[in-house]
């Protein structure tokens, strides 16, 4: 029964990935146009993708009996869900920021694709995977990643607009507003990342008997957080903005990718035991 449910969850994830791909294509075609057919397709596909994705995670949860944060598939799915949900919420509240979808939906699609490629299987909770601190730890990292993707999306649009020598959105809003979006979501990513790290320290103290161990994942995570902090301080006190700040956000995001996915795959980390499976 649980194996059948896992298969159903995988199919729902596949459907969500297809919908995110459609939403990505729609977002690209909608660039520079307001209230176009492509924009509508992107909105609908994004919302439908999120709904199907949530259903997929719910089915997986029932099948394995725990939240989606143990295996690689579960983690990638959760990161994709956070990205997609934050994008949808942002575009719903501020339709003018819809162009960030050209980055965030492809990211969600790629994460789901990688997750499905790595295989959806039944995972069990190890003895250390209990308690509210673990749940808070992973949830804040999911949020941090999602907000970082939005900030990256705004930064990439600024850089793309600059490369084309015109406004990134073709008139829907100006680069200054995109810059503000990148700044604010960069700040949120910094805050969520920090809280994720701190709640992780409390969990590690309970689970492993130490709150910090200079484990590769922990060290890279701290480095990423510090660079996000540098990004915010350079913007706040040294008036960094525009392309210069956007490039730094790209660096921040690259570090986030290395911390969350890279170190677990290439180093012997206490965290990698879970992400490798």
């Amino acid at each position: 029964m649980s194996q059948q449910l896992v298969q159903a969850a995988a199919l729902l994830h596949l459907a969500a990935a297809v919908l995110y791909a459609i939403a990505s294509a729609g977002a690209v075609f909608a660039l520079g146009k307001t209230r176009s057919g492509a924009d509508r397709v992107s909105r609908l596909a994004g919302a439908a993708g999120l709904a199907v994705h949530v259903a997929g995670i719910a089915v997986l949860w029932v099948a394995v009996g725990h939240g989606p944060f143990v295996s690689r598939f579960e983690n990638l799915s959760s990161y994709a869900l956070a990205t997609s949900a934050l994008t949808l919420a942002l575009v719903w509240r501020r339709p003018g920021f819809a162009p960030v979808r050209v980055v965030s939906y492809p990211v969600a699609f790629l994460l789901l694709g990688l997750g499905l490629y790595s295989g959806a299987g039944v995972s069990v909770l190890p003895p250390t995977f209990t308690g509210v601190w673990l749940v808070l730890h992973v949830c804040f990292y999911f949020l941090a990643f999602g907000t970082a993707v939005v900030s990256l999306g705004a930064s990439v649009l600024i850089l793309a607009g600059r490369a084309r020598g015109r406004r990134a959105s073709g008139g829907a809003f100006d680069a200054e507003q995109l810059d503000g979006l990148a700044y604010r979501y960069g700040g949120l990513a910094f805050a969520f990342w920090g809280i994720g790290m701190l709640t992780g320290a409390i969990w590690a103290n309970n689970a492993w008997g130490r709150y910090w161990g200079w484990d590769p994942v922990e060290s890279w995570s701290l480095l990423t957080w510090l660079v996000f902090g540098i990004y915010l301080h350079l913007r706040r006190f040294y008036a960094w903005k525009g392309a210069r700040a956007a490039w730094l956000m790209v660096v921040c995001f690259a570090l986030a990718i290395i911390s969350l996915f890279g170190t677990s795959l290439v180093t012997n980390s206490i965290h990698s035991v879970y992400f490798r499976s």
Partner: peptide, 13 residues
């Protein structure tokens, strides 16, 4: 202190 940082983040953003 983690909760103080959290509170600061909430107030700030």
């Amino acid at each position: 202190s983690f909760f103080v940082i959290f509170l600061g983040g909430v107030l700030l953003y």
